[in-house]
């Protein structure tokens, strides 16, 4: 038993590291039971705190300090993503040279997932009838200048094949956004190697190992940002 729900307690007492915390928070967005538990646990711990009277001048210092501290503007949440059918022309195969970036890629993924302004949207998942689909979400941060595709439940892929991510701007050809092999872990994290902006479609196909520069495989996952 290694369910993500079990992290509710250690999350509530802030005992997760940054990456685990970011991962649990992505889960928390969609899990009302964990939200309820975390709230209860936090209130229970606060009930254990003996209140302490502040120094007389603390309030004045705080009231002065807020005059210099503008309130943050809330970035409007993206409209609910809807599935967009994508027609893809089969084109030439061309090997993408990606590699040797594992270290910096992981650092950039972490930077995006732990950014204060990270926004996450669900991508609707198509079912090609092969059961080869995943729950997909997209996390992006303007501050960290990156977007990470988060996939759960993607099947392991044959050794002569690869998953390929695509960013498809409205009315334009798909842009290759990275190759990856599902790790068999709870969640695959894919740093998108193409710019993501509002209105683009993010998609995944299965392709021959080495990847292609335009999708030939069936769209397994697609969603509009």
């Amino acid at each position: 038993m290694n369910s993500i729900h079990e992290l509710a307690g250690v999350y509530a007492v802030d005992a997760l590291d940054d990456v685990e915390r970011a991962r649990f928070e992505r889960h928390l967005v969609g899990c009302s039971e964990c939200q309820r538990q975390v709230e209860m646990m936090r209130r229970a711990m606060l009930d254990e705190i003996e209140p302490v009277a502040p120094s007389a001048d603390l309030k004045e210092r705080v009231m002065t300090a807020i005059e210099e501290a503008p309130q943050v503007e809330v970035i409007a949440r993206p409209t609910r993503p809807r599935w967009v059918p994508v027609l893809v022309a089969a084109v030439v195969a061309l090997v993408l040279a990606i590699g040797g970036l594992a270290g910096s890629t992981q650092r950039r993924i972490t930077a995006v997932l732990t950014a204060a302004d990270v926004v996450e949207v669900s991508l609707d998942v198509t079912d090609p009838g092969r059961g080869q689909v995943a729950e997909a979400r997209l996390a992006y941060s303007i501050a960290a200048e990156g977007a990470v595709l988060l996939l759960t439940g993607l099947d392991e892929i044959a050794s002569d094949r690869t998953y390929e991510a695509w960013v498809i701007p409205a009315g334009a050809d798909p842009i290759p956004a990275g190759l990856f092999i599902a790790g068999g872990s709870e969640e695959d994290q894919v740093l998108l190697k193409a710019d993501v902006e509002a209105g683009v479609v993010v998609a995944i196909t299965e392709e021959p190992a080495g990847g292609v520069d335009a999708p030939t495989g069936e769209i397994l996952v697609a969603g509009e940002v």
């Binding site: 079990e6 992290l7 509710a8 307690g9 250690v10 509530a12 007492v13 005992a15 538990q37 209860m40 646990m41 209130r43 229970a44 711990m45 009930d47 254990e48």
Partner: peptide, 18 residues
């Protein structure tokens, strides 16, 4: 540890009627 913290916090919340 994960389980102890979770179970303990849930029990605490229950006892306090939170």
């Amino acid at each position: 540890v994960k389980t102890r913290i979770r179970d303990g916090l849930l029990k605490l919340a229950e006892n306090l009627g939170v």
